[in-house]
Design a protein around this nucleic acid. Sequence first.
DNA 1: GTTGTTGCAAATTGTTTGCACTGGT
DNA 2: ACCAGTGCAAACAATTTGCAACAAC
Lengths: 159, 159
Amino acid sequence: MTSEATIEEVGTLLRSRGARMTRARRAVLTVLARDGGHLGAEEILGRATVLDPSVHRATVYRTLDALADLGVVQHVHVRRTGTAYHLAHGGREHLHAECRGCGAVQDLPADLLDDVVEAVGHRAGFTVEPTHVALSGLCAACAAPAGGPGEPGGGAPGR
Amino acid sequence: MTSEATIEEVGTLLRSRGARMTRARRAVLTVLARDGGHLGAEEILGRATVLDPSVHRATVYRTLDALADLGVVQHVHVRRTGTAYHLAHGGREHLHAECRGCGAVQDLPADLLDDVVEAVGHRAGFTVEPTHVALSGLCAACAAPAGGPGEPGGGAPGR
DNA sequence: GTTGTTGCAAATTGTTTGCACTGGT
DNA sequence: ACCAGTGCAAACAATTTGCAACAAC
């Protein structure tokens, strides 16, 4: 369990900024550190509530926001879940792709869009942040012609 | 004005499917054909209401949905505006990039992600649809270090 | 006349905010 | 003790849905 270590670190970071490590924040961090996946706010709320029943929905949002400010968590915009959060492991993250059929979110290598980032940077002066939104498309199962698999709930894990 | 021609065409298309060309649909199409930009639903509603005061918000959504089914309109998911709609000019479309600073949406060449699409298709079996979500990042103005421009409402047109 | 569509109002979903109180430091 | 955070309820924005009236074919 890296959870506790992480929380300890974040606590220090928070304090060093005049902020505080609270029960709610501990709960949210524990959830994020334990799972590691892409959790939606509601999802995080649910699990955090188990750890600490007093944690409130609004607090989860505020906490995630605060932690994002600190650079501790990152969020990805996914159509289905709305927004997904996960710990920022420091350096490079991975990208995400969401199937518009079944809603599954899968990870993609971080360097996938490097060329695109550079190209757009040069040609349009626009700094693309590839981790910030999930690419959209169809996963293998959902792309398959009718008759086979491809039903929601079937293929992928996650949510 | 290609508007009327377009509407005529779509009308035929609709009828050929047992659907109908109604006042509301005409209004929405007129707005889309006139502007051509990426309009949000609320925006379309507003302009359509001018053309025909009876057009209702819910109808706009249903109309956009129906037209999307026909392949007449396409939508892009943008964090700010929610969802932006525009006519599908037949073949290849352009991609979109949204500045997370000022919210400006700019177009990018359609072939920009071709390599990525292919790479992901091969390696992950995932069919990326690059036009479906806007890339996120910072536009030139907003990326510039403090002290300069980069304020909302300043840089880009559109919305 | 049939039935695809609309208008309206109310329900959903995801997220934010004002405010008085509580708990970290 | 002081003030950052919290719980709560209510506000919000974007989008959807049930249903009766309506209008395009």
